[in-house]
Write a protein that binds this DNA or RNA. Structure first.
Lengths: 143, 143
DNA sequence: TATTGTTATACTCTATAACTATA
DNA sequence: TATAGTTATAGAGTATAACAATA
């Protein structure tokens, strides 16, 4: 009945995605809480790299927030013993973030839970799951 | 090379979805800011229904946060003139939330922007967009 | 007694502006 | 001068606990 915009497939797909992701809100908060962390601290942990120490400014960009916030977020992760700040020799203004042993373990635990597909995706058949994966690979670029 | 869990299709799809949704973080904050609102206030607006006034407790459930937060969030929406609280005659403990005219307009503007698919989805062909929509309809239930 | 919503409290996230120390 | 990170500040989101009004 002339609700053409509403039934555009990309719009409907996106609206369903928003709904799906929002429905996961509570899970992350709960998992973070079990580790004594806030959701934002978990996201910070998620964007740190055990292989390649990340600078404060890089983390600010990953978290899409002002650099001044990152100071506090990293302060709290550091006080939990999960992260260490170290100045770089090349440019002593820059501080890189190293995961401690505990930090790597916590990060691994959280990532394992976060990356586990929710019931909605597990409800799809294996063929559908592959189809979804392929579509998202396509959408998110060749990388 | 034996990274079997990582290559499970559902897990990869979900990981890509997390990445996609996170990449949209800045857009919502920007749109909210243009309306003088916070992201959370926008989500609250999103969960209000122009057709069916929602109770405070219902909104708390939709937002997946404690009822005590909703008091403050609705206070701010009300002070912006977007929402009105009204006690119900049947049970005078519950307060239902009515959108004002301005509230409906603001909500409509924001929803229009939020539901517009991001570049990643527009990059898919129409056939792929329909495929994605159908998969998500399946995943999110028969409704 | 139980439930709806509010208040009080303490902590976290948030951006802006001013600052320090490097470069 | 410019940049990386911090501090100060004020406002918003967060849960917990205690409370008022109503059922």
């Amino acid at each position: 009945m002339a609700t053409r915009a509403r039934t555009d497939p990309a719009t409907e797909a996106w609206t369903l995605l928003i709904k799906l992701m929002w429905s996961q809100r509570g899970r992350l908060a709960a998992w973070a809480g079990e580790e004594g962390l806030s959701p934002m601290q978990v996201h910070a942990l998620r964007h740190l790299d055990p292989e390649r120490p990340v600078a404060m400014s890089e983390l600010a960009e990953s978290l899409v927030c002002d650099a001044s916030n990152v100071t506090g977020i990293v302060d709290r992760l550091e006080s939990h013993g999960l992260v260490e700040r170290r100045s770089t020799p090349e440019d002593r203004r820059v501080k890189r973030l190293f995961l401690t042993e505990a930090g790597e373990l916590t990060r691994g635990r959280l990532l394992g839970r976060m990356h586990a597909p929710p019931p909605e995706l597990r409800a799809l058949t294996p063929a559908e799951q592959r189809q979804l994966r392929d579509l998202l690979r396509r959408a998110l670029g060749p990388a």
